[in-house]
Computed example of a mutant assay.
Amino acid sequence: MDLGIHNKVALVMGAGGGLGGAIAKTLAKEGAKIVVADINPDALASIESALKSAGAEVLALQWDLSDLSVIDGNIAAIESHFGAVDILVNNTGGPPPTPAFGQPSEVWSKNFQLMVLSVIAITDRVLPSMRERNWGRIITSTSSGVVAPIANLGISNALRLSLVGWSKTLSREVAREGVTANVILPGRISTDRIRFLDEAKAKREGRDVNDVSAQSTESIPVGRYGTPQEYADVVAFLASANASYVTGTVQRVDGGLLANI
């Protein structure tokens, strides 16, 4: 299937991680020009090298999402190199595991700026050109915790949920100008982040990490963790020309994990 995004400019945030890297590679296979952004220079260099080896047109930007002052300059660099952004994949790192109670206000503020304000500000920067051209895709990756809050992920559950309300509101504001805005949420996808969370839970409960993973797997109807590629394939569809009538949604990629409708 031709997804209709050949030569579209795609900005993938958090591209050095498992999900972001898979998304960048999948969009590149469809012929998009890829901008990969990540705070980790080694991870960024790795995904840049992989994309170039595959023949993709790629621009790599080391980007600290906690610093809102760099947004305008970084987007200007993309526009100078490739042109205006057509596809924006908002993908941020997750906060450390914590209960909801008792977290210092500065921890909430720091993570709000990193996980929420940065996403809103980057989107605001690229939206005007999308609206002018009557074409754009805004895809925001969150967590299954926005539907069913996850124990000991209080900060993530709260802050990522705010992005769902923001994206839904935005989708209605820009729909008639050919711009879609959707949220996509992963269940248990096999990434370094999930391994870290499993290890943290095992340490917290005094259990073997393999037991924790096995118990988690048992709760998933398909009986396994998902792969980053399976997640990336859904993102690619939402980024496609074919998905022009899909907006304002929350798409789950969870193997049936979430039991609610």
Rank of each mutant, 00 (worst) to 15 (best):
Y245W: 10
V126L: 04
A232N: 03
F196E: 14
I75D: 00
Q62F: 12
P228C: 04
G93S: 07
P104M: 03
E218T: 13
S190K: 14
V89A: 10
E199D: 13
E30Y: 05
R131H: 06
N7T: 09
A15T: 05
A100R: 09
T191Q: 00
D233H: 11
L51H: 04
P221V: 09
R188S: 14
A77R: 15
T26L: 09
L163P: 00
I75H: 00
K8Y: 02
V147I: 15
P99F: 06
S109W: 03
A28E: 08
E106L: 08
L153W: 08
I71A: 05
I23N: 00
P41T: 02
S156F: 09
V58K: 05
I122W: 04
L117S: 15
Y245E: 04
N157P: 01
V126I: 06
V235C: 05
I261C: 08
S141H: 12
D38V: 02
S66L: 13
I71Q: 01
L161H: 15
Q113I: 15
D208M: 03
F237W: 06
A54E: 14
T191M: 01
L185C: 13
R195I: 11
Q215I: 10
D233V: 06
P221L: 12
Q251C: 15
L44F: 00
T217C: 06
I184Q: 05
A158L: 11
R252Y: 00
T180A: 11
P99Q: 10
E199I: 09
A60L: 00
G178D: 01
V147H: 07
S190R: 15
N40K: 11
I150W: 08
V119W: 06
I194H: 07
A77D: 14
P221G: 00
D254G: 00
I87E: 00
A202L: 10
G93E: 10
G4W: 04
A77E: 13
Q103T: 04
L159K: 02
W63T: 14
A84W: 09
T123Y: 01
T92D: 10
F112S: 12
A37C: 05
K29V: 09
A232C: 02
R125D: 11
L11V: 02
N91T: 09
L185M: 15
G55Q: 02
L59D: 07
V89Q: 08
F196M: 13
P104G: 04
S171D: 06
G178L: 01
I155W: 10
D2A: 09
A181D: 14
Q229A: 14
R160K: 12
T249E: 14
M13Q: 14
V235Q: 02
P96T: 08
K25I: 10
S118M: 02
E177T: 10
I261H: 07
A43H: 12
G154Y: 01
A200I: 09
